[in-house]
Amino acid sequence: MKTCLVVDDSSVIRKVARRILEGFDFQIMEAEDGEQALESCQKLLPDAILLDWNMPKMDGYDFLKALRRLPGGDRPKVVFCTTENDVAHIARALHAGANEYIMKPFDKDIVEAKFQEVGLI
């Protein structure tokens, strides 16, 4: 079973994402911000990370840069999932090593399409 770390400061978003991704047979872990996510990845790297941008303590962009510097940190497929819906943010995310980008609001079809795109489904 593949693992996915859902990183978002909104418990509602985490719950929605969990429900969608469990439907695709992912084992879900959760983190409320970039710091928690980084601690989690230092213990165990997931196969996929669904990542919010704006979060307290450490945002998604700084987390992604830190993740990619970890040993093996280039392995997880990172899909941003954010309200930052403009070309500049998307370009920055890709430059920092994101594999795909979901613009909120999202639904099951979009998550499925993006995870398929990066070979996670």
Partner: peptide, 20 residues
């Protein structure tokens, strides 16, 4: 719409071929 460009279109092709 944002929904339409997110279904099937890789994000690299989105930013390369579309403008907001």
């Amino acid at each position: 719409s944002q929904f339409e460009v997110q279904r099937g279109l890789p994000v690299q092709l989105l930013i390369k071929n579309f403008s907001q």
